[in-house]
């Protein structure tokens, strides 16, 4: 077995102290290989969001180790984790988090701005990413002029524009109707299948989790069940994905 892309070892997360102490994670061990599509499930308060924040290098474990490509994330500084995020990770949120009154293209270019890319490089990369999510020609629309599904696609384009190793999606379909949700899942599945991007997704909708090839269930701060999905959904609604777009 090759070295995993992500390895959590005995990770705990503690909030507060004394009487008010809350143990959100109680010793998690989790290995994720490059190229996996993992759905993280569980009821609210089960610790799945906390785990997701740690996996996304936004938070650090109270105890235990987090190895990302062999690097000890738990000992990195705030800025070092930011550099790691900008290089390897892409984020998709439930609430899209697009900048208002800012065109789709500028939204997608945002991560590249922090990487110091030139305007030309940014424009080309953003156009490519927007094409990959089926929004070619929508570059100059602002979020207010786009539907919810389209906004989430812009957000996905923003997540993949840096060509990350991992895309972390936190309830990406939580604000969308069923039809749009399936479109977004089809998109994430295609990114994982065709471009080898590792996708970690938090969801509580079994229909959406069914697209993943592995499901991890959290209950009460522990992993209750971690199993391959024997029969992942592969027939998503038709979403145009340009060949070699990413």
């Amino acid at each position: 077995m090759t070295e995993p892309l992500i390895r959590l070892q005995g990770v705990t997360k503690r909030y507060g102290s004394g009487q008010a102490e809350l143990l959100a994670l109680k010793g998690i061990d989790l290995d994720i290989q490059a190229g996996e599509f993992v759905a993280i499930m569980g009821p609210s308060g089960s610790g799945k969001s906390t785990a997701m924040n740690i996996l996304g290098c936004l938070d650090t474990p109270s105890q235990g180790q987090y190895l990302f490509e062999g690097a000890h994330v738990e000992s990195l500084s705030r800025d070092q984790r930011a550099r790691l995020r900008r290089r390897y990770l892409g984020f998709v949120f439930q609430g899209f988090n697009l900048l208002a009154r800012t065109s789709a293209q500028e939204n997608v270019e945002l991560p590249l701005l922090y990487r110091g890319d030139t305007a030309n490089v940014r424009r080309t990369a953003a156009a490519k990413a927007l094409q990959a999510v089926g929004l070619a020609g929508w570059e100059h629309h602002t979020p207010a002029e786009l539907s919810g599904g389209q906004q989430q696609r812009v957000a996905i384009a923003r997540a993949i524009v840096t060509e990350p190793a991992v895309v972390l999606a936190d309830e990406p379909t939580g604000n969308l109707d069923t039809q749009r949700s399936h479109e977004i899942m089809g998109l994430l599945m295609a990114l994982n299948r065709d471009h080898g991007i590792t996708v970690l997704m938090v969801t509580h909708e079994p229909d959406m989790a069914a697209y993943a090839r592995r499901m991890v269930h959290f209950i009460d701060g522990r992993i209750a069940k971690d199993a391959a999905n024997p029969n992942p959904t592969t027939t998503a609604p038709d979403v145009p994905i340009a060949e070699g777009a990413v």
């Binding site: 930011a82 995020r85 984020f91 900048l99 923003r158």
Partner: peptide
Amino acid sequence: LRLAIGAL
């Protein structure tokens, strides 16, 4: 968002 996507 800016911090999450890697702003220092």
